[in-house]
Design a protein around this nucleic acid. Sequence first.
DNA 1: ATCAACATCACAAACGTTTGTGTTTTACTA
DNA 2: TAGTAAAACACAAACGTTTGTGATGTTGAT
Lengths: 328, 328
Amino acid sequence: MAVTIKDIAKQAGVSPATVSRVLSGQVAFYSEKTAKKVKKTAKKLGYQKNTAAVELVTRRSKVIAVIVSSTKTNFSDQIIDGIQQEAGEHDLNVIILYAGEKDPQMERKALETVIERSVMGILLVAVNLNSVNENLLVNANIPYQFLSITLKNRKLPFITSDDFQIGYQATKYLIDKGHSKIGFAAADLDSVTGQLRLDGYHQAMADNGLQLNSAWVCGGDFAYEDGVNAMKQYGREPEVTAVIASSDLAAIGVMNQAQDYGLKIPADLAVMSVDGTKLCSIVRPQLTSVTQEFFEMGVRGMQQIISQPTKAAKSAFTPFKIIARQSV
Amino acid sequence: MAVTIKDIAKQAGVSPATVSRVLSGQVAFYSEKTAKKVKKTAKKLGYQKNTAAVELVTRRSKVIAVIVSSTKTNFSDQIIDGIQQEAGEHDLNVIILYAGEKDPQMERKALETVIERSVMGILLVAVNLNSVNENLLVNANIPYQFLSITLKNRKLPFITSDDFQIGYQATKYLIDKGHSKIGFAAADLDSVTGQLRLDGYHQAMADNGLQLNSAWVCGGDFAYEDGVNAMKQYGREPEVTAVIASSDLAAIGVMNQAQDYGLKIPADLAVMSVDGTKLCSIVRPQLTSVTQEFFEMGVRGMQQIISQPTKAAKSAFTPFKIIARQSV
DNA sequence: ATCAACATCACAAACGTTTGTGTTTTACTA
DNA sequence: TAGTAAAACACAAACGTTTGTGATGTTGAT
C-alpha cells in the first residue's frame, strides 16, 4: 500500500540499496545525478520511511522516552523543555508517557512499552520504581536516568537538587529573617527527598540552637491539599511564625488556608515554597521560594544519556537558589 | 544479543511459530502443556518482544500519538488524562509529543515522527497546522482528530467547546449580574476560537441592547501576560465593570493587575475566566469561570479514533458550564 | 482395520529497511 | 590500446516477528 524504497528504486531505475543510501544521507556511494533523481521521485511518490523496518535492522532508535509521574506538582514542563532542547540539538525525538501517581501497574506498562521499542534512552522524572520495575529497567540494557528525585538505591543515577541543602538553606533563610518557630509542610516523609529536606531542616534548627517541635512538621505528598491540611494542623493561632512548604502548590495551600483563618502574609505568617515555578509570581502575595533549576535537570539528563555508553551515568546535583518575593 | 522467540523455541523444543502464537495469546493452536512450557522459558530468558518487528510484519501499531502545542495554557493535562483512560480500556499505548508554540518546524517534525512510526491514531490538542503540515497529516492515511480547537477548515474533525456559545453565555451571565460595560480580553483574535468567542460576546451585547466599545476588547494569546496587558489597557479607572478573560491564566493576570491598581474584585471589577482548571479555585478571590470539559474531550477524541475506520471522524462539541465562585 | 476429523505443531514467506561485499562502469595512466 | 584504480552501483542477507498452509499425530466412529 504505502510507498516503499523499492517503489522508488523501480521508478528511478536504481537499486533499493542506492535509494537507501541516498535517503539516509550516506556519502561517497552514489553520484550527484542519481541522488537528485532518487530524491525527486521519493518526493513525487510521497515516500515516508518505515521506522519499524529501520529500527529492526539497525537495532537502535533515535527516540528518547520520558516517563513522568506526577501531575500533582507542576515542574515537569520545565524539565521536558530542557530535554527537548538538548534532544533537538542531537536530532533525537522525544516521546513522553504518563505513568500515573505511584501506580506500579502503569509504571510497568510504560516501561514495557518503551523497552519493547528499544528506545535510545529513558528519562524518569519524579518516578520512584518498586524493585520489580527497577529490575525491568536495569536489565533492559538501555541508558536511563532519574530526574528530580533522590533514590534510596544510590546505585541508580539521578539528577536533582541537593534536598538536604534545600531544607537547610530554606530554614536558615527564615532563621536569618528572625523566625525561630518554623513549620515544615507537605513533603512526603516516606520519600528520600522529603526525608532529606527534613534532615536539613532539623540540622539548620540545631545549628542555630533552636528547639524542635514535632507538631511543626506535617507530612503529605507535595499537593495543594497537603498545604491546606498542614495549615489546618497549625490552627487559627499558629505557634509557628513561618512555614516551609515542599512545593509551590502546597505553599499556596497553606497561604490560602492561613488567609481563611484571617492571618496576614507575611506579617502574621511567613510562607516559603520549594520549586519556584511560574506559580510563585502569579499568586498574591508572591511566593518567596527555593527555586530549582528544572530546565537544567532536563538538559543534563539528556547529556548523560547521549554520552552513554562512553561513560556510565552518574548522579549529580543541579544548583538551586532562594528567590525573595513577598511571602516572607 | 537480546533474546528472541527463536531462542525460546530452541529451548522449549518447539517452533518459533508456536512461541509466537502462545505469547500473543492466540487460541486453539497449541496444547496447554506446550503453552506452559513456552511461557516458562520466556520468563526464564527474560524475553522482551521486539515491537519494531511486530509492527513491521503486522503493519499496525497500538500506539496513539498526542501532539500538544500549548504550555501557555494549562488544560492539556486534563485532556491527556481523558485520552489515557480511554486508551487504557482498549489496551492502547499513548505517547505525547510537544510541538512548541506555533512552530511549524517542530510541528512538522512531530508529525513526521509519528507518521513514520505509523501510529494507530493522532490526536492534536490545541495545535493549528499550516497547510503543508495539514497535507502531511491528511495524506498519511492515519486516523486523526483535533482537540480543543476550532479550525478554519471545517473538513477536519475537531472536538471542542462551542466557542460562540462560550462567548455568548459568559457575556449573558455578566449582563444578568447587572454589568453593561464588559471587557473581552486575551483571546487570540486571529484564531477561529478567539473570533467565535468574540462573535458570541458581540451577539450577547447586541441581544441585550448594549453598546459596544472596541476599546473593551484586547487581543492576545491566552497567556498570563495578555491578561496583565489587557488590564493595563483598561487602566486604573477602567470604564468596564467586568471582564471576560479567555483563559484561567489570563484571568489571573487581569486580577493581579487590577489589584495592583488598587481595585477590589469583584466589587470594583468582576472577572470571569474561560477554561475552569484547578487554578480557578486556587487563586484568591476564586475565579468564576466558564468551565470546559477537557477530560471529556480526550475521551471522545479517543473514541473517534478507535471507531475508525468504521465511521469517518466527525466534529463535535463538548458541553461547558458556568461555575460561580468569587470573582464576579 | 479404515478413515475421517480434528488437534497440534512446523515450514517458510513476508514486512521494509540497512549494509557488507561483489560487480560493473568510468576515468585515467602508461 | 591495454591496464588499472576508483567511482558508482547492484545483490543478497539479515533484523524478529506473524501467519497461511502443509505435515504429523491422535481420537473415535464405522
